[in-house]
Structure formats: structure tokens, C-alpha cells
Design a protein around this nucleic acid. Sequence first.
DNA 1: TAAGATTGACGTTTCAATCTTG
DNA 2: CAAGATTGAAACGTCAATCTTA
Lengths: 159, 159
Amino acid sequence: MKMVQLQQVHAKAFVMTALPSDLAVGAWASLIRVQQSLLDKVEADLAAAALPPLVWYDVLLELRRAGPEPLRHRDLHARMLLAKHNLSRLLERMEAAGLIERQPCKDDARGADISLTAKGAATQRKMWPVYGRAIQAHFADKLTEAELSSLVRIFAKLK
Amino acid sequence: MKMVQLQQVHAKAFVMTALPSDLAVGAWASLIRVQQSLLDKVEADLAAAALPPLVWYDVLLELRRAGPEPLRHRDLHARMLLAKHNLSRLLERMEAAGLIERQPCKDDARGADISLTAKGAATQRKMWPVYGRAIQAHFADKLTEAELSSLVRIFAKLK
DNA sequence: TAAGATTGACGTTTCAATCTTG
DNA sequence: CAAGATTGAAACGTCAATCTTA
């Protein structure tokens, strides 16, 4: 019964409002730790294959899923798994690497249209096997289908 | 049945090794998204209370849990929830803020002993109510005890 | 005025190189 | 040489200010 404790060692007798139970704190701590560890492993697998980081895949995939039409900066931002504050800077680097292109938006002169280059699409295709295998090896292989379903259901309540 | 898909839209017929199922990919995506969102919310609550970021709490708590004796740099690193590569820099900032002290280690002249100052201990005590309430509000309140237990059990398999 | 996006300034993280001691 | 920790340089992220257009 060794529970991870994030709270202070000697708890106060009175607190102003509800503090989490040991169970909740343990679950929280394991969530943080596991996600960190998984992300690290996946990033390491990508780096070992001399591929760009996960956040680049995030951009490439969303552009690919959007089909032939370019995606607006703001739409891309909304869809990304690892949404970053400064998407402009990230896109700048990816454009410099020749993976995407930015053009002024026709409909809305404020907007920026982001589109995938052939090289960007190729990079996305090269990354998926490595990324996917990493998800399988470090995550899916260790859980049953029922457990994966549980995670989906539980996480849906946390949105 | 709208599943999040991280893989390319048109799957190849043959792949070199196992790629994750749609279920696994969906669970993976929700894990990433939920953890990011939760961390953001907690950090926002701390910032709103004019308190230091979570990683500082991480340091302060581990030092507090270690009791009166100082903790070695490497031991602190190993215990932290949000382990960072460059702990030296983080400790440098925290020392500048007067929350911790660094001294050469007696036993091992290579080592650094990290200890909590009174101000550091006080900061840890001020942070916990905000941190704890954030865990409760954004995480624990939305789940049942059974679900929290499930998470703990499932995450234990991913270590 | 608000929305969309970029930029500058600043702080932080990372990686490798380094220094020291076991 | 390996382990423990720090440092420099560069990459990256963040926040607020800015610019442009709806």
C-alpha cells in the first residue's frame, strides 16, 4: 500500500476546500509519469530513425487529412494533438525544411493557407511506420483491448 | 464511430511490422490530449494564484519528503514527477529565488546536496492547496473511485 | 472592435562538451 | 574510464505587443 503522495507529509487538519484523496493523487501522478515516459520513448524512436519530432508529424498529418486543399493556420492549430502557442514559428521551421508552404488566404486576407509539399507528404509517410510501431510497442502491446477501451471511455470524461 | 486516426488516410496493404489498431491509436491520442489539457489547467491555476510552476513544486515536495537531510542532485532527479534534463539550471533559478540551497556533498566530492530553505518549505505549503484543488477539480471530480483505480492499475502496466 | 497571424524580447530546454572525482 | 554535475550554444516555447483586415 505504498501510495504516491504529492501533498505535504503532515496534512493540515482543516483545509479551505476539497483536496484530492490518496487514490486521486496516485492516479494523477501515474498519469503524468506514464505520459511523459511514453512521449519520451516515442520521440527517441523517431530521433533514432533520423526523423523529425512528433509535433512535426502532428502538422503533417493534419495537412494530409485535410486533403488537397490547404488548411488555415487557425484550423490547423485547432486540430493539432500537441497544440503549441506559437504555431507561426513552428511552421517557419517546417517551411524552411521544405515540408510545407504558406500562402496568403484568398477568402480572408488576414489568414494564412498552409499546404503540404511533396516532400512534406513523403516525410509524413516515412514517419508513420516508426510512430505507429512506437505506439504499438510502448503502449498498445502492454494493454488488452478492454483496457484500451477503458482509457478511451475514462479520458472522454476528462475533456 | 468517429475514431481519431493518426495514421495516413490510405493504409498500405503490407507493413513491415505491427501497427496499432484504431482503438489503440484513439486511446493514445486521447491520452496525449487529456494530459496536455490537464497540465495546462493546473499550471493556469497556479499562475492565477501567483505561484511558481509545477516543476518547482515537484522539487520542493521531494526535498520536503526527504526530511531534514539534504538530497543529492541525482536522487532528486530520479524522484521527480516531471523529470527535466537540465536540473542544474532549474535549481539555479530556485536558489536565486531563495527556495533551496546547494552545497558540495560531504561523502562524494562530485555530488551536490540540495536542501530546502524555510522560504522553500513555506512556498511548498502555499502551493499544495492550489495544486491539490486543481487536481480535484479538473481530474478527480470528474471520475469515480472505480475509474481512478482503473487508471492506476492500467498505468502500472505501462511502466 | 475583434479576429487572424506574425514578431520581438525574454526565459527555458536541450544537447553536447567539459570538468571533476570515484 | 565511468559517474555526477555544470556550462555554452543553439533551439525552442511563451507572452505581450503589433500589424492587418473583417
